[in-house]
Design a protein around this nucleic acid. Structure first.
Lengths: 116, 116
DNA sequence: GCAACACTTACCCCTTGCGGTAAGTAACGA
DNA sequence: TCGTTACTTACCGCAAGGGGTAAGTGTTGC
């Protein structure tokens, strides 16, 4: 059984790098509402389409979204499964120091729940 | 009331960028076991000290660790509170599409718990 | 005192990331 | 069929990231 995620994982590199940009995070948030075409996604941004498409490709390469082309329209959709790996890594990190910072562990749980 | 975290947050940029490197993730994991000096942390890596120190500074600037210098030794320690922001953002993302992917939401919960 | 130690500063190199433009292609829509 | 739409490809420029070396600074230990 694999008890921990490999820190050397290129997957984690690409996923975290994908998260490390405001435009891409905004796209992910928008896609949380449901699938959308590239033009729909790019509309709110003051950016030319080619560089915007690079963000889409970055998200797709990271596995955070899936896209498919129908006719001339490329539709993007979020890929929830990928989030699981990230959450697993963070959870494991937390477990790592949880025993040393017991009270803060509870704090994190309360913070996680505060948007409920 | 703030119901969502700003996607434009430079904090998220720096934190996710800090996570997007295997060396830094390994340092974080090591620090989960307890505080350590820079030399102790750098020992496992085939890397000169100056570039390694840049990783430490990156982690510190991201707020993921705190460091203090006693004499000639700089001691590093993990800063659990920062993880809360990241987890909050991820949790909110998940809530965003959870209603659309109800079954996968349960999947994520099970994945998060599988290292317990 | 003086050498060894633990960084620290100052630079260099190369690659990658994030933005841009110009021009091309394939699919609609009238 | 022919213009418009929705990307797509090809390219450019600049800044930042991740690595290196050389030399400097302040402690510590003998």
């Amino acid at each position: 059984m694999v008890t921990h995620m490999d820190n050397n994982s290129p997957d984690l590199d690409t996923v975290f790098l994908a998260f490390a940009d405001p435009t891409r995070r905004a796209v992910l948030r928008r896609l949380g509402q449901g699938p959308a075409s590239v033009s729909e996604l790019s509309a709110p941004f003051d950016m030319a389409l080619p560089p915007f498409m690079k963000h889409i490709r970055t998200l797709e390469n990271a596995g955070l979204i899936v896209t498919r082309k129908n006719g001339r329209v490329r539709t993007c959709e979020i890929n929830p499964a990928r989030y699981a790996e990230v959450e697993r890594w963070l959870t494991e990190q937390r477990r790592n120091w949880a025993s040393r910072y017991g009270k803060l562990d509870a704090l994190l749980d309360s913070l996680k729940g505060q948007t409920e």
